[in-house]
């Protein structure tokens, strides 16, 4: 089963067509990189996967998106439930203006039934999520402080940690390291590689070296079209399409 599958996906922002007939399958448990020049529709495609695009009234979509073999535009699908399973990490770390602790349990407060939100259960969830995100040792003594006290790297880890208590299946990452320095980037990449199939990860990146380092499979997009999809090694070393070859060789973009 594929974690994400799209068939004939088109998307318009008003009159501008951002995605053209995109048919894509993302393997479950793998890390898939979305590469391509700015404005090629990578982020747009990412934002389709949890229907967050719908918050923009100018967006119109046709085609089919299946997440874990369920068409997410079926009438019985609730976007709120979908977003629990499909979490998103942004380019600029965007922790909420509350304490570190409250950031991590925010999702549980929204979704978990009251009996599952005992202090002990929340404490446990916080430790588990922060440990998994590699942040527990740094922040365990200052969980009550606001997230502003954290450095950029820690903030981004917090944004990852805050998705985990909801036990997501898929993590969408929109250039998660674009605002970070080299060391922080390395640490986040290590985190992604460490998941080992626990989550299906779809990561947008401008950094081709990063795509090579972290991903199992790569998708190359250009002008809203999906040009090539294959194993990362194949897309980079033996691209089938000349446009892919030119891009990964750095001749444009």
């Amino acid at each position: 089963m594929n974690a994400i599958e799209t068939r004939g996906l088109n998307l318009w922002y008003g009159d501008f067509q951002a995605l053209r007939d995109v048919t894509l399958s993302v393997e479950q448990g793998a890390v898939t990189a979305l590469i391509g020049p700015s404005g090629c529709g990578k982020t747009t495609l990412l934002r389709c996967c949890n229907r967050i695009n719908e918050r923009n009234p100018a967006v119109r979509t046709t085609g089919e998106i299946r997440i874990l073999d369920k068409n997410i535009y079926d009438p019985d699908v609730s976007p709120l439930e979908l977003r629990k399973a499909v979490g998103m990490v942004f380019q600029r770390p965007n922790p909420l203006p509350v304490s570190i602790y409250e950031n991590v349990v925010f999702g549980l407060r929204l979704h978990a039934p009251p009996e599952a939100r005992t202090r002990a259960a929340l404490d446990l969830a916080v430790e588990k999520a922060l440990t998994e995100a590699g942040l527990w040792e740094d922040v365990k003594d200052k969980l009550g402080e606001t997230a502003t006290s954290l450095q950029l790297e820690q903030r981004q880890k917090l944004c990852i940690a805050r998705l985990l208590p909801l036990q997501p299946d898929i993590l969408l990452m929109d250039e998660p390291c674009a605002a970070l320095d080299v060391t922080a980037t390395e640490n986040i990449e290590q985190l992604i590689r460490g998941w080992q199939g626990a989550y299906t990860t779809l990561i947008v990146t401008h950094n081709m070296a990063q795509a090579r380092r972290v991903s199992d499979r790569s998708v190359f997009m250009l002008s809203g079209e999906l040009v090539e999809l294959g194993s990362t090694q194949q897309v980079f070393d033996e691209p089938k399409d000349p446009r892919t070859a030119d891009y990964v060789a750095g001749r444009y973009g």
Partner: peptide
């Protein structure tokens, strides 16, 4: 706006977003 985005992406409804994040700020 990114506070709202963060909330929505955790599956918060509009009302939950307004009550927990927008109004307090």
């Amino acid at each position: 706006h990114n506070f709202r985005e963060a909330c929505w992406n955790l599956g918060a409804s509009r009302l939950q977003t307004i009550r927990t994040i927008v109004l307090p700020n």
